[in-house]
């Protein structure tokens, strides 16, 4: 009895000494930041930075919070639960950003020629009946997650490019990707748009037919890296440090996954080295990671004009409030060299 009590006392004293030593460490304590994201391959730079210690190098201690949909990430930033987030741009995102809570500071992935990212699928029945290409979509139904989602904008981009009238494609909000997959398999919708790794699975099993990739028709800045307006104004050095770590990881990713040789993608040993990291966070199989790895700008530079274009389209459709001005939620001062920055 007594000896065990003594032992515990010793242990406690030892623990206290350790804690004191930790406190006495002269180096400035790591700044805690909460990083919110979806476990998608397009969020890879966040994971690479964590795994390779780029946050620590910048004096940051990153804690991840994972979400199942893009919207909560943006809400988390607005409510102060998250410091940094990476998701696709949606109507909800722009509306929230337009209320002044969010600042977009860098790029996530984008549609770039040669890099299959989001593809259009036709149901087998619709394909048999003549829906063989994106140009055939008018007169068919299109399943998507939600109104104002990136999938909604995908079809909007096509409608703008080909000049389809407003109600040419019947939109069917289905709330989730599994619902979309179920609906295309059973033929309850004629078409959907999905990321490349899911497209590969569905076409491989013969459940649906690929009728075109978004990048074949139009470029698009799909998503961004964003933080709260409060962080930008009150913790600027922390934001700068985070951006540096993100860029570092984005360059690693770009080197590994975004090489083209004769218009074909090639993956070298760098990719092999990164796949286990991405696999750890996304729980995706290596094949799916290769198939679904999008184009990510090595420096996190945004195609700014495309964001303006998306906001304008969403305003036209009534999905984004008239008062929303991209100028007010874009902060281009953290990364240099953004593309297509408007003159004024």
């Amino acid at each position: 009895m007594l000896s065990s009590f003594k032992g515990r006392l010793v242990a406690t004293a030892f623990g206290a000494a350790l804690a004191a030593a930790a406190l006495a460490q002269p180096a400035q304590a790591a700044e805690k930041v909460v990083v919110c994201a979806l476990t998608f391959v397009s969020s890879s730079p966040l994971f690479i930075a964590a795994d390779k210690g780029y946050y620590a190098e910048e004096g940051l201690e990153a804690e991840f919070k994972f979400f199942r949909a893009a919207q909560p990430v943006a809400v988390g930033i607005a409510s102060g639960d998250c410091d940094f987030g990476v998701t696709a741009f949606t109507g909800g995102f722009f509306n929230l950003a337009g209320k002044g809570a969010l600042k977009v500071i860098g790029a996530q992935s984008r549609e770039e020629p040669g890099f299959d990212f989001v593809g259009f699928l036709a149901s087998n029945q619709a394909y048999e009946a003549g829906l063989k290409s994106v140009e055939d979509l008018p007169g068919h139904s299109f399943g998507m997650t939600q109104v104002g989602s990136s999938f909604h904008y995908n079809i909007g981009l096509m409608a703008d490019k080909f000049g389809w009238p407003d109600d040419a494609v019947a939109l069917k909000p289905l709330q989730s990707v599994p619902n979309m997959i179920g609906a295309i398999k059973s033929g309850q919708v004629d078409s959907i748009a999905l990321p490349a790794h899911i497209v590969a699975g569905l076409t491989g099993s013969g459940s649906a037919k690929l009728i075109g990739w978004v990048h074949d028709y139009t470029p698009w800045q799909l998503g961004g890296l964003f933080t709260s307006a409060k962080n930008v104004s009150e913790r600027r050095p922390v934001v700068e440090a985070f951006v540096r770590a993100y860029q570092h990881a984005a360059r690693d990713y770009h080197e590994a996954f975004n090489k083209l040789e004769n218009g074909k993608r090639v993956f070298g040993s760098e990719a092999e080295a990164l796949v286990p990291i991405i696999e750890k966070y996304t729980k995706a199989k290596p094949d799916a990671i290769y198939a679904g790895s999008p184009f990510i700008d090595p420096d996190g530079r945004l195609k700014v004009d495309q964001i303006y274009q998306q906001v304008a389209w969403m305003k036209k459709k009534g999905l984004v409030d008239e008062s929303v001005d991209p100028k007010s939620f874009l902060d281009l001062s953290f990364i240099s060299g953004h593309y297509g920055v408007p003159a004024n």
Partner: peptide, 21 residues
């Protein structure tokens, strides 16, 4: 109206929620 509804008060509420309106 969660699934596949373009019109309807429920669909309207859902899409307003998705759009943060």
């Amino acid at each position: 109206e969660m699934i596949g509804a373009e019109f309807g008060i429920g669909a309207f509420i859902l899409s307003a929620g998705n759009l943060m309106q």
